[in-house]
């Protein structure tokens, strides 16, 4: 019995050392997609959440512990977005390489300027994030910043392929900058437009496109819309209508639909991240589709 168990352990140990390619564990699909652009083609990239999942509220499932156990690099949005599951995963996964402070632990929020840092920390304000709004991937300029950091970490973890990582970053940067020019042109017409959002998760997108958020369907962050709050919004919208209501695919459809029906303001579903829409399969498509959906709304 003990002998066969030992053999199994040796076998499993052998499996782990045989896999020379990098294992990358991403908290969210956007960082997985970015890692795919920047790492070598043979790396194994796993995303803890998928496009239709709300990254605030998943659970520390055994499958995630198992994946994080073998990860060489962990990439996550940070700013307490994953506070409900990642700290537990980190402790449970028994993996020294991805603990805080190690090169294998990449908190994307540290590389960009966070917005909406609350002045007053009180749960009466809802489920707020003390470090600021964590939904940073909706601004393509942030993607570039995180890309630089990912590439830097890849080189530290796997110095042997340093040149290859540099080339990948250079190539991506070139393509991304060109795409950013295009999106900027497309987004010109959106300047100054007012929008209503479901949850405060479009701050970076709106800031980039210089659009204005005038209301949220949630009365407080993380608190589902209440009938009272919705009727207040209806009055507000009838008095001073917004151009559109923005929704992420994993948010409840009904409150937005109700407000649309009452006010005639269209609700549009943006992909939010990779896989948030069948047409958003990589970062370029994500922003292409986002701008397409935004600009399709006629005044």
């Amino acid at each position: 019995m003990m002998k066969s168990l030992l053999l199994i352990l040796l076998y499993l140990g052998g499996l782990s050392s045989a896999q020379a390619a990098l294992n990358i564990f991403s908290g969210e699909p956007e960082w997985a997609a970015l890692a795919k652009e920047l790492s070598l083609p043979d790396s194994n990239i796993y995303s803890a959440t998928q496009g239709l999942q709300d990254p605030h509220h998943i659970q520390a499932r055994p499958a995630l512990i198992a994946r994080l156990r073998s990860a060489d690099l962990l990439i996550y949005s940070g700013a307490e977005l994953e506070v409900g599951w990642l700290p537990l995963l980190l402790r449970r996964a028994h993996n020294a390489k991805v603990q805080a402070g190690k090169p294998g632990n990449l908190d994307a929020s540290q590389t960009v300027r966070l917005r909406e840092i609350p002045k007053n920390l009180d749960r009466a304000e809802g489920d707020i994030h003390a470090s600021g709004n964590p939904h940073i991937q909706t601004d393509p300029r942030n993607i570039l910043r995180v890309a630089n950091e990912i590439s830097h970490r890849l080189k530290r973890i796997d110095p042997e392929h340093s040149d290859a990582y540099s080339a990948r970053l250079q190539d991506f940067t070139k393509r991304w900058k060109a795409a950013m020019q295009r999106w900027k042109q497309q987004g010109r017409s959106l300047r100054g437009e007012k929008v209503v959002v479901y949850h405060d998760q479009w701050v970076y997108l709106l800031h980039w496109l210089k659009m204005e958020q005038v209301a949220t369907l949630e009365p407080k962050p993380g608190i589902p819309p209440t009938p009272g709050h919705l009727s207040e919004l209806k009055a507000q919208m009838l008095a001073s209508p917004a151009r559109m209501i923005l929704r992420a695919p994993f948010m409840d459809e009904k409150p937005g639909q109700w407000l649309s029906a009452q006010t005639g303001i269209p609700t549009i579903t943006l992909p939010y991240t990779i896989g948030g829409d069948p047409q958003a399969n990589d970062l370029f498509q994500l922003f292409d589709l986002t701008l397409q959906r935004l600009t399709a709304v006629q005044p």
Binding site: L12, S16, A66, H94
Partner: peptide, 12 residues
């Protein structure tokens, strides 16, 4: 003392 196997299926 516990050990987690380096497998995709969680084994501890």
């Amino acid at each position: 003392l516990s050990w987690i196997a380096p497998t995709d299926t969680f084994f501890e």
